[in-house]
Write a protein that binds this DNA or RNA. Sequence first.
DNA 1: CAAAGCCCTGTACACAAGGACAATGTGCCC
DNA 2: GGGCACATTGTCCTTGTGTACAGGGCTTTG
Lengths: 205, 205
Amino acid sequence: MTQRTVHVLTDDDALFQRFMRLGDVWSVLRLQGPERLDALPAESLVVLDTACAGLAATALEQWQAWSARLLAVVVSSMPTDDEGLYFLDAGASGYSHAYAAEVTLRQILDVVVSGEKWVGKSLLNRLLAGLQQARENHTDKRTVLLTGREREVALLAAKGQSNQLIAETLQITERTVKAHLSAAFEKLQVSDRLQLALKIHGIPH
Amino acid sequence: MTQRTVHVLTDDDALFQRFMRLGDVWSVLRLQGPERLDALPAESLVVLDTACAGLAATALEQWQAWSARLLAVVVSSMPTDDEGLYFLDAGASGYSHAYAAEVTLRQILDVVVSGEKWVGKSLLNRLLAGLQQARENHTDKRTVLLTGREREVALLAAKGQSNQLIAETLQITERTVKAHLSAAFEKLQVSDRLQLALKIHGIPH
DNA sequence: CAAAGCCCTGTACACAAGGACAATGTGCCC
DNA sequence: GGGCACATTGTCCTTGTGTACAGGGCTTTG
């Protein structure tokens, strides 16, 4: 059996460990920064974590350039149909919850390596529902991707911390915490912190 | 490699599926009711889910009788140090979160089969802290185990449902939902529904 | 420089959540 | 029959949460 190499770009150690455990079929390497993507040979399999610091600021054009050369699987710890559309539009080969079951992750990599695209059933249903409708509305980066601060606050809230505690932790006012959380709620299409926690931790409702 | 058999008693299909995936080392059988436990040969390895309907009403003496004959691993989707103490006191060989990582579950079964007891680090720390203190206080069944209704409400809340929605679902008043939830919070040693959700879904803080 | 994006903060308000007291009915066991 | 566990519901109150209305400062980009 041939061994494929997959390059993972993430700031999340736990996430990287998950890929390390995928099995001996996969040789897993960690990318140290987005700039290394350009140095990879064409058709390389890469996994990109949207929460990665260097990626949030990346322009759509850059995504398209990468996607054209590489097999990019975008993973998010807070997946959204809109975000998925954004990256698949940009040319990504796959989009998934970062903490999907390991069997699913293996399946995704297998599918992508074989040249197909991997689209989760949630997004797939939406695409089938009406492609023209999805196209004219969203797919706008700033209404989809969390900013760094929003992500920080969202993760703390998902761990069960109160607004007040988050404020103390980050040395900002509770009001600001609320602002970031409200923004995160909208972008992630959830209504409150519990739904946020469930989504972030990959628990289906 | 010899194949060991493990009997699983649970109402939770998803939980049983998890055990089915443990690997070919384990032959996994599902018990249809608590009464079947008495028919098993001595030293059989069994996994008992505390949320199983028939088990909630089981007396301490029955637990002790089972534990004396069998190798019992008690699992709970809402583990508590107190609940762990209750079952380990009753003679169980192991106590764990029902949705612990699969590697952990394998490890637990290995340990128990080898004749050891498995105690999680949370409980272990507490045992080390002061055994006499733990003994004089709790270990009382009704302050530890959720009643059927409490469990129903807790699971719905952990899925993100509001008190009002839970009330409509179960055809009771919101006030009653609050009552059951408050009882569940205390028994599970959590402060609010988000902590409850994290605990039930096995997310470490 | 102007525009845009992000981060920060403020006041005020509506509502959900949880605790503090409580009580009633029902079924079971000694 | 009297205790006991359980499920149910009541009112009152405090606190946390989320939103609606804002605005100011700072940095990057065209």
